[in-house]
Every structure is written in structure tokens, then in C-alpha cells.
Computed example of a mutant assay.
Amino acid sequence: MNDERRLAEILFTEGFVDRLASIERYWSRVGFPHGFDRLLDAIENNAIPLLQSFPAMGRRFVGALTEACESRLVNDVLPAITRIDGPAQGELREYVLDDHVLLYLLTGNTVHLLSIRYDRQPSFDFHLLNSPEAEYSTG
């Protein structure tokens, strides 16, 4: 990495932290807390350093969203979740990490981690991004 390049700032939203708590409850419930430890290790030692160095590395998130829906999500919903003042001038992206997908908003040189899901879950539940009710499921 170029020493003159500034590392991106990584911010964890409440929704992301709530999803991690849901994942931890799942692994405790199935009697394998090491599964959660492995996920945290992968986030800390793989995803975060890569996103700090290459914040745009995740693919643009388009999923089933139309451009208008993505625009509304980025400009109306995400500022409240990320505590950004005004419209979020950024890109909604997703990064695949082992068996999980991290959803994040890239604004300037800041990565806002929004949610995490098991890769076999059909989609992100946007209405639950900032809600502890979002339960983790592996299928």
C-alpha cells in the first residue's frame, strides 16, 4: 500500500452491532460459540484491514433494488442509521466474507458497516437494519 494513502475510517452502526449480537445468540443456542469467534476473527483480521485499505473493493449493491429504491435508501433511510447529516452522498456496497455478506455505505473515506447476513439468506431486511428484532438464520 502507498504510505501516503490514508486508511478509510470504519464505523459500526447500531444495526450492524445488533446483527452481530443476533449471530452470537444463534451460535450459543446451537452450542457452538466458536462459530461466532471465527466470524469476529474474520471481520477483525480480514474484512476491516481490507476495507480500510480498499474501501471500494466491495461490489455495488444493486440486488433487487431499482435505481430509485437504492437512491431513496441511500438518501433518506441511511442518514438516520449512520447519523450522517443531510443526504448520504455515497455508494451502497456489499463485501463477501467467507459465509457472510457485509452491507456497507461508502461515503468519502468512511465505511459505515450497516448489516451482516449469512450468504444463504435471501436478502437484507432493510426495514430491520437498525432494529434488534433482526434474527440471524443460517437457512
Results as ranks from 00 to 15, higher is better:
residue 2 N to Y: 09
residue 3 D to I: 15
residue 4 E to L: 15
residue 6 R to T: 11
residue 12 F to K: 15
residue 16 F to K: 04
residue 17 V to H: 11
residue 17 V to N: 08
residue 18 D to K: 13
residue 20 L to T: 04
residue 20 L to W: 06
residue 20 L to M: 10
residue 22 S to C: 06
residue 22 S to N: 12
residue 23 I to Q: 10
residue 24 E to C: 11
residue 24 E to S: 08
residue 28 S to K: 09
residue 30 V to T: 05
residue 32 F to I: 10
residue 33 P to M: 01
residue 33 P to Q: 00
residue 34 H to S: 13
residue 40 L to V: 09
residue 40 L to I: 14
residue 42 A to H: 03
residue 43 I to G: 00
residue 43 I to S: 01
residue 44 E to S: 13
residue 48 I to A: 03
residue 48 I to P: 04
residue 50 L to F: 13
residue 51 L to Y: 01
residue 54 F to D: 06
residue 54 F to N: 03
residue 55 P to V: 02
residue 57 M to Q: 11
residue 58 G to P: 05
residue 59 R to S: 08
residue 60 R to L: 14
residue 65 L to Y: 04
residue 68 A to I: 09
residue 69 C to H: 15
residue 69 C to T: 09
residue 72 R to T: 05
residue 73 L to K: 04
residue 77 V to G: 07
residue 77 V to N: 10
residue 83 R to G: 08
residue 87 P to W: 15
residue 93 R to T: 09
residue 94 E to M: 09
residue 94 E to P: 00
residue 97 L to W: 07
residue 97 L to F: 02
residue 98 D to K: 11
residue 99 D to V: 02
residue 105 L to V: 07
residue 105 L to K: 05
residue 108 G to R: 09
residue 113 L to W: 07
residue 114 L to Y: 06
residue 115 S to P: 00
residue 115 S to V: 07
residue 117 R to H: 11
residue 119 D to F: 15
residue 122 P to Q: 07
residue 126 F to T: 02
residue 129 L to V: 06
residue 130 N to C: 05
residue 131 S to A: 03
residue 132 P to R: 03
residue 132 P to H: 00
residue 135 E to V: 14
residue 136 Y to T: 09
residue 138 T to Q: 14
